[in-house]
Design a protein around this nucleic acid. Structure first.
Lengths: 179, 179
DNA sequence: TCCATTTCAATACGGTCGTATTTATATCGA
DNA sequence: TCGATATAAATACGACCGTATTGAAATGGA
């Protein structure tokens, strides 16, 4: 029993939601705002995602999977902790202006109940789980990872100003640590 | 012409606001919630701070000044960029559980319009402004600073799990870089 | 063709929020 | 004591939000 064919592209809706958060802040993320940005109706958004919590969950999930694919493509067969961190750093380094969706998504999640970030928590924790923090070499890798995250967050949030040369130089330093 | 004496403690109101953000998220920060937590009325909060934007601005300002005092106490007469970063790292390292107000305040600001962070922007930028990023030694200091910020943010946001031994070991590494 | 079904739009509703307005309370100078 | 004034509470208002409900449009099978 197939009914009316789908005319709303979920991906486009998620794009619109990300754009709203990135441009006007997570506070202004609403069904109505997303609908207007995606050029559909508020009810259409609700029909596609049900609740706002589910919309946010979808945003997180899509971005996490996307970033993971990027990381895995960069590293080869070597799936060690240090290798994954290296891929993570490279992916972060190359994230262009338009791809600030990551921080946008994080902000959105954190805006809601703090425990909403549980999904991303596993994602982040896994990055460090393979390291033995009692060993200096592994701590160095963790330090490089944390520096990359700090640089990324502070820059995407507009809290520090790094031009491209500084950005690349810093990530080159981080990558030389994990290699 | 002195009128009715003040009975509301602004500091207590700010404490309540921080606690709300830290515990239930920035989304639930409202005059009414703050009033209830501070055991006064919604109108009292409004009278003290005028607008919500001003309340948030007050939160940011108070925390920034508090953290700066902490940093300046830790470093002596040496006000070089590296010395300030060292003090910053130490202050971050010693920030106890109860003093998660920093991330709480940041989240609150970022929740509003993104340009709301302009005040904090200057604060962060000044941390790196004294460094010459073309010199490896200065980049190392910047890297340590960024690692500290990354560790702090990810931990306060509940995205990574570091026990006290790991936390202290990482900050010891960072501090050894800037010294 | 007609009905079941899926998809989405229209509309409505209860709740909360920030703020404006009005009222009450407490102090000091005259 | 009596305004004038500063402080805070009470109340009200308009806007927006998330969601529930209802209705319309488009498909396929009987």
């Amino acid at each position: 029993m197939a009914g009316r064919p789908r005319s709303i592209d979920r991906e486009k809706v998620l794009d619109a939601a990300e754009a709203i958060v990135a441009q006007t802040g997570a506070a202004s993320l609403s069904f109505e705002a997303v609908a207007k940005a995606a050029d559909i109706t508020k009810s259409g958004v609700q029909y596609c995602f049900g609740t706002k919590e589910n919309l946010i969950r979808s945003m997180i999930q899509r971005w996490g999977e996307s970033f993971d694919r990027d990381v895995m493509e960069r590293i080869g067969a070597d799936r060690s902790a240090r290798s994954i961190i290296r891929g993570h750093l490279e992916a972060t380094r190359d994230s262009d202006e338009a791809e600030y969706s990551r921080s946008a998504v994080m902000m959105t999640a954190l805006l809601q109940r703090p425990d909403q970030v549980a999904a991303s928590r596993e994602w982040y924790t896994s990055r460090l789980s393979g390291l033995d923090m009692t060993k200096k070499a592994d701590r160095d890798a963790a330090l490089a990872f944390l520096a990359g995250e700090g640089a990324f967050m502070l820059r995407t949030l507009g809290l520090i100003d790094l031009d491209e040369a500084q950005w690349n130089a810093l990530f080159a330093d981080m990558l030389s640590i994990v290699r």
